[in-house]
């Protein structure tokens, strides 16, 4: 079964009226998708030009997508016309939701106004989420392959299971992973943010850590540790900027070793914590 639902939040273009599972107000679109196989695992792919994404584990068999267009800030450089003219808030979430055989594709095409998307999914759901600007990711309680890329904000994962591949350009990555899929790798990378990753205490992994300018901390006992430190004399570049470059590459085994978990931070600090 293929299901395609499009939401435009202009009151006079309220497609939601024709789709019982979809409700909308000026800035909000809600779409409920019944999965083709309610008992099977689910995949959710969401890509935003700008905005945040929150995913929470909820009821089995359905995915609920809520998109909220952020309030438009009043145009400061242009004077209000005054008199009888009132400003009508124009808010497009431009939400599109498609489902085919338990794969749910969520998109918004609003390049100029950030849209905040909240998605409720079955616990057994794999995620592929992308945002280019202006928003954080929050993922709670999901079990699956979690693939996240956020260029405009932070990533927080709470109580997730499975595997995580996550990248941020600016924000921190904070992850609490309660169970890791055996034999599967993970990867965390950030240009400017910190990596603060809590792994299950019994996890078996071989860690590869690369930190260019930050520190690395862990309360795991890391066996067979190898550290390669590339340190160069501090110097001023041609524009007089002082730079010191210390790059640390670290590898070792946790609980006897296992699949590779990679941690790569350029400016940020890396924390690898021992969880429950």
């Amino acid at each position: 079964m293929r299901c395609v639902i499009t939401g435009l939040s202009l009151a006079w273009l309220c497609l939601g009226a024709a789709i019982p599972a979809s409700t909308e107000d000026d800035a909000r679109s809600i779409v409920t998708v019944e999965l083709t196989d309610p008992s099977g695992p689910c995949w959710v792919h969401c890509s935003l030009p700008t905005g945040s994404i929150t995913v929470r584990a909820g009821e089995a068999g359905k995915v609920i997508v809520e998109a909220v267009s952020r309030p438009e800030s009043p145009p400061s450089e242009r004077a209000e016309p005054g008199g009888a003219l009132k400003r009508i808030p124009v808010t497009f979430s431009e939400l599109t939701v498609e489902e085919l055989e338990n794969v749910v594709q969520v998109d918004t095409h609003s390049f100029y106004r950030p849209v905040d998307v909240s998605i409720t999914v079955p616990v057994l759901t794999s995620l592929r989420l992308r945002s280019r600007d202006s928003g954080d990711f929050l993922i709670e309680g999901v079990n699956g392959e979690i693939d996240l890329e956020n260029r405009g904000g932070a990533i927080t994962l709470q109580g997730v299971s499975g595997t995580v591949v996550a990248y941020t350009l600016q924000g921190d990555i904070v992850a609490e992973i309660v169970e890791a899929t055996p034999k599967k790798p993970m990867s965390f990378a950030s240009l400017n943010g910190d990596l603060d990753i809590t792994l299950p205490s019994a996890v078996q992994a071989t860690v590869r850590i690369k930190s260019s300018r930050g520190e690395v901390y862990s309360d795991f006992a890391i066996e067979d540790a190898e550290v390669r430190q590339i340190e160069e004399e501090p110097a001023r570049d041609s524009e007089g900027v002082f730079r010191a470059h210390v790059e640390r590459v670290f590898s070792g085994k946790i609980n006897g070793g296992g699949p590779e978990f990679q941690f790569h931070a350029y400016h940020g600090t890396i924390y690898i914590r021992r969880g429950q």
């Binding site: 794999s126 592929r128 693939d147 591949v165 790798p185 993970m186 990867s187 990679q262």
Partner: peptide, 11 residues
């Protein structure tokens, strides 16, 4: 298709 599987292959 999965990033995890591609990572696994590279490892």
């Amino acid at each position: 298709a999965s990033a995890v599987d591609r990572l696994s292959a590279i490892n």
